[in-house]
Design a protein around this nucleic acid. Sequence first.
DNA 1: TGCCTACCCTTACGCTGTAAGCCTTACGAT
DNA 2: ATCGTAAGGCTTACAGCGTAAGGGTAGGCA
Lengths: 202, 202
Amino acid sequence: MTPRETPLTREEILGAAIALIDAKGTDALSMRKLAGALGVEAMTLYHHFPSKDAILDGVVARVFGEMRIPEPFPEEWMAMAEEMFVAFRRVLVEHPGTIGLLARRPLNTEDSADFVEAPLAVLARSGLPAERIGQLYQSLVAYSFGHAFIASDRPIAPADSALRTDEVRYPTARATGRAISSFDEPTFRETLGHIMRGFAGG
Amino acid sequence: MTPRETPLTREEILGAAIALIDAKGTDALSMRKLAGALGVEAMTLYHHFPSKDAILDGVVARVFGEMRIPEPFPEEWMAMAEEMFVAFRRVLVEHPGTIGLLARRPLNTEDSADFVEAPLAVLARSGLPAERIGQLYQSLVAYSFGHAFIASDRPIAPADSALRTDEVRYPTARATGRAISSFDEPTFRETLGHIMRGFAGG
DNA sequence: TGCCTACCCTTACGCTGTAAGCCTTACGAT
DNA sequence: ATCGTAAGGCTTACAGCGTAAGGGTAGGCA
């Protein structure tokens, strides 16, 4: 096989991996298929990443790198934190396939530490004692993550699952008549507010 | 090989599957290993379940079947709902390996519909309009699920991951100095209350 | 010229889920 | 008593997986 004209780069590989995951789901990402999409053999990828897990870690880091908080920043700490968690949820909903990834390799990489520390710094402006801030942070992360997880209504289960995809009914879908979607952002914001005001002793 | 003295049963298979998942994680559950634990060959399992996915669905149903709400039932709807979601979280934390399963095959089976309808019925006692009840239910499920997911501090990633397990630091662990654990149930209950009171217009 | 390094390749191993088909035992009907 | 059928187990086989091991070839530098 004729080699590629330009050498592969880490970024190129991560881009292809995200595209593949977004298009076909996590299960569709195999080393052979990823390499195939790049016009290369599977083992070539091991020159750029030590393992598949390392690629997945890179994918998570890249997705987090896309997180943007809309300017201008609100002054008030609750509004600021709300924007940060909305951004968190939005990036997860935009890349539903990566949610399961994030689930079991949460911010393994160095540079994603910012996305942990930044919201904590904002919550600290509330003046609550440190322990309460930790609990509040926990609650907000858990809620945002869970919401994004359920909101990724495209089931990540393979299409040839034992059950036909058409028949799958999610709890909320069955209960409320529709799945959670990105249009639920207002409810998401509202609940964030309830949690924060609750902790702030409102 | 001499055949087993007693025929296999569906329940026996599910029990072995849950034991395997609890002990070694989801990744350790392969048809061959599960069959081996039962003293049987892999293909034998296909006499009792049409596919591996069907076994996983059965596992989820069984785990949900373990959900118990402590008696006596509280009268007040908020207290009642709180107990239900605490039970939900508790069962997930007790079987951390199944959380990822539940994630992508949420209540596929028929008999688990109860676990969807029952909390909704309780929330309906609040007298809120139907749409608000749906949103509240969404929020509570998302929070409970996310909390349980993060609380399963045993990372489901295989031990031979690219990163040593010892080095894995979860956001909350790094931030607060410890991981979420089952001892966080008080905070869990508190946040459930904040969400419910927020929706109830408290 | 010779060597080193970067980059890509091929081959191979043990694992996965499961399709296909064979063998034995148990049982109900003729 | 004999047969048909079904249940429940087995073996074999296939395509796909992650990756260990090692070979080749091109460009840069001594």
